[in-house]
């Protein structure tokens, strides 16, 4: 089930607005299922910025490498420190433990271009 406390993109990222203008970003359980065992995240550093729909990193799984696309724009405040040592945390728990970035949300209006949990579920079940 896709939690309905966040928004989704067709590239299978989620974004959760957490107050104070912060937004947490991750990849969905569907994406993780498709990727299989994740062995490496290539992520930017705190202080850098991401732009909506632009590539911000890569995820290497045993099977393939995939680009990561930002669901919203903003300056990166935090990068999940656990992923550098235990990228498999995303396989275990993509919704909480396996988050990727926290950004300062640049423009609330960008969320309008994302999907609800229901819309995302419809997309991934077809």
């Amino acid at each position: 089930m896709n939690p309905d406390d966040r928004r989704y993109t067709k590239e299978h990222e989620w974004v959760k607005v957490e107050g104070d203008g912060k937004a947490r970003i991750g990849i969905t359980a569907y994406a993780v299922e498709e990727l299989g065992d994740v062995v490496y995240f290539e992520l930017p550093n705190a202080g850098e910025s991401v732009s909506q729909a632009q590539k911000f990193g890569e995820v290497e799984s045993v099977k393939a490498v995939s680009d990561l696309f930002a669901p919203v724009s903003g300056e990166i405040l935090e990068v999940n420190p656990e992923l550098s040592n235990r990228p498999e945390a995303v396989n275990e728990d993509p919704w909480e433990k396996g988050w990727l970035l926290v950004v300062r949300l640049q423009d609330d209006a960008e969320l309008g271009g994302t999907m609800s949990a229901q819309e995302y579920s419809d997309l991934t079940s077809t």
């Binding site: 299989g36 065992d37 062995v39 045993v62 099977k63 396989n91």
Partner: peptide, 9 residues
């Protein structure tokens, strides 16, 4: 079958 529980495991 490409995998069951996971390729690495």
């Amino acid at each position: 079958p490409i995998q069951y529980q996971g390729i690495l495991a």
